[in-house]
Computed example of a mutant assay.
Amino acid sequence: MELNFLATILLSSLSSASILLIATLGLAVVYGLMGVINLAHGEFIMVGAYSALTATQIGLPFLLAIPFAVVTTMTIGAVVEFLIIRKLYGRLFDTMLATWGLGMVFNQVAVLVFGTVSPGIGMPQWSFKIGDYSLAVYPTLMIFVAAVILVFIYLLMTHTVYGMKARASIQQPQMAQAIGIDSSRVNTMTFAIGSGLAGLAGAILLPIIPATPSMGLFFAVKGFLTVVVAGPVTLTGSALAALGLGGGASVTASFMTSVVGDVFFFLVTAILLWLYPMGISAKWRRKL
């Protein structure tokens, strides 16, 4: 088998895994630091995509539309946490039902406002060749983007006052309250950051996956399973799970079909959850 072909498959698979990771990180942050499973995460991605699309339609360059989408989804996330999530802490099933219902509301609002079909912004037509094989630049660039976002979250959680408060609130909640940490404010910020990461994903991936009311479902299922497989060490666990599941599914799809790739994803997920019911990172010493 040609080395050029293998290199092409490797880069394509890393790109697919990176896209999955970008779409998953917001969910991982909220679940890892708050213990909240946000079933509206896919709809926050959709809101980010529509926010970026709307910004470009009113004349903003795409690079400025991305922070606009992040601010929009962060604001919505803070409001949702204050009005809904805050009242449901410690009630996992109720939180899942509430966010599921919220996702349905977002979906229907998107249908009413934007319709079922929206114009895309088009992907930059840049490509590069590896031997006789050609790869698009923008999807490949997602490998670098995912790495940057991952490093940013790591630094945010380990080298900032907010990060220390957030980790203290989840790891030692009673001690955190005893030393004066306002857990409510920290939780609002955490949910807003998770929502902003979802919006960032929707905006960045807009040239690859056009905005539609149902686009969130594409990410929500695989993102949720990735976080569950990752386990309690959500950041590094999610990175490893996305690389294994997303990359493996892409490699399988390259040699066979996309349907077989999806079968690989769900089959390996089931096997990993059978072997590691608490996630692959359950026994890791690292906590982030």
Score class of each variant (00 low, 15 high):
residue 130 I to G: 04
residue 15 S to W: 11
residue 286 R to D: 12
residue 270 A to V: 09
residue 54 T to E: 11
residue 200 L to V: 07
residue 257 T to F: 10
residue 63 L to A: 15
residue 182 D to R: 13
residue 20 L to H: 07
residue 41 H to S: 01
residue 43 E to R: 03
residue 197 L to K: 01
residue 45 I to R: 10
residue 24 T to C: 00
residue 67 P to L: 12
residue 269 T to P: 02
residue 225 L to V: 10
residue 1 M to Q: 12
residue 240 L to H: 07
residue 232 P to W: 06
residue 272 L to D: 00
residue 242 A to L: 09
residue 221 V to T: 14
residue 235 L to V: 13
residue 26 G to K: 00
residue 132 D to F: 07
residue 88 L to K: 04
residue 277 P to Q: 05
residue 38 N to D: 14
residue 145 V to G: 07
residue 52 A to L: 05
residue 179 I to W: 09
residue 115 G to N: 07
residue 251 V to N: 05
residue 36 V to P: 02
residue 225 L to H: 01
residue 120 G to R: 06
residue 103 G to F: 04
residue 169 S to G: 06
residue 266 F to T: 00
residue 93 F to V: 15
residue 78 A to S: 10
residue 269 T to M: 09
residue 65 A to N: 05
residue 175 M to W: 13
residue 257 T to D: 11
residue 95 T to A: 12
residue 275 L to T: 08
residue 56 T to C: 12
residue 175 M to T: 14
residue 239 A to I: 05
residue 220 A to D: 01
residue 37 I to D: 03
residue 28 A to N: 02
residue 204 I to R: 03
residue 198 A to Q: 01
residue 138 Y to K: 10
residue 184 S to L: 13
residue 161 V to P: 03
residue 40 A to S: 14
residue 53 L to E: 02
residue 253 A to L: 07
residue 135 L to E: 08
residue 128 F to W: 06
residue 252 T to R: 03
residue 156 L to D: 06
residue 73 T to Y: 02
residue 178 A to W: 11
residue 33 L to E: 00
residue 59 G to T: 09
residue 35 G to A: 08
residue 41 H to Q: 11
residue 141 L to A: 15
residue 181 I to K: 00
residue 180 G to R: 10
residue 231 G to S: 07
residue 193 I to T: 03
residue 255 F to T: 01
residue 140 T to C: 12
residue 287 K to S: 11
residue 159 H to Y: 10
residue 224 F to V: 03
residue 202 G to S: 12
residue 282 A to P: 02
residue 278 M to G: 05
residue 94 D to V: 09
residue 203 A to D: 09
residue 211 A to Y: 02
residue 221 V to I: 15
residue 29 V to E: 00
residue 59 G to D: 13
residue 79 V to E: 11
residue 253 A to F: 05
residue 21 L to S: 02
residue 86 R to K: 14
residue 15 S to L: 07
residue 147 A to R: 08
residue 72 T to G: 02
residue 124 P to N: 09
residue 48 G to P: 05
residue 88 L to Y: 13
residue 145 V to K: 08
residue 258 S to K: 09
residue 258 S to R: 12
residue 233 V to M: 06
residue 133 Y to M: 04
residue 111 V to E: 15
residue 195 S to N: 04
residue 143 I to M: 13
residue 35 G to S: 06
residue 136 A to G: 14
residue 128 F to Q: 06
residue 257 T to A: 07
residue 99 T to L: 05
residue 130 I to E: 09
residue 151 V to A: 14
residue 143 I to P: 10
residue 128 F to S: 01
residue 202 G to I: 08
residue 157 M to S: 05
residue 230 A to W: 00
residue 43 E to C: 02
